[in-house]
């Protein structure tokens, strides 16, 4: 389910994000929806998202030390940061990715 970055503006995205999921479960779909929403809100124009389905490419799990799914990995900027869970908390998402909120926080996702 690896797909090209959907919102690529600059040649190199400032935030290179990778979302690891295991199949098209409701949890992974929720996570992806939440991720898109949060990125649009806070990182518009400076991010890229790569979704990796471990059921299809299990060998990739070792590379980023994935245990839990869904896991969001911030590959850039360094250092690597990880957020596990379905990204239902906007605050923890911002803390986890070390992102300054663009606008006042509001409840995100479901």
């Amino acid at each position: 389910m690896s797909r090209p970055p959907s919102h690529l503006k600059p040649p190199v995205a400032a935030f290179e994000l990778r979302l690891y999921v295991a199949g098209q479960t409701s949890k992974s779909l929720t996570a992806l929806t939440n991720l898109r929403h949060l990125c649009e809100n806070h990182l518009a124009g400076q991010y890229s998202i790569e979704v990796i389905d471990l059921l299809k490419t299990p060998q990739l799990a070792a590379g980023d030390q994935i245990l839990a799914v869904p896991t969001l990995v911030r590959r850039l900027p360094e250092p690597i940061k990880k957020i596990i869970g379905d990204l239902s908390s906007e605050e923890r998402f911002l803390v986890g990715l070390d992102v300054q909120p663009a606008k006042p926080l509001k409840p995100a996702g479901e």
Partner: peptide, 23 residues
């Protein structure tokens, strides 16, 4: 596993571990 690399946001499971092991 590095505790300070993690941030928990919502539900998750350990399918990643299962998949790694299974692989």
């Amino acid at each position: 596993i590095e505790r300070n690399e993690f941030e928990e946001t919502g539900e998750y499971n350990l399918d990643g571990l299962f998949i790694r092991l299974g692989h």
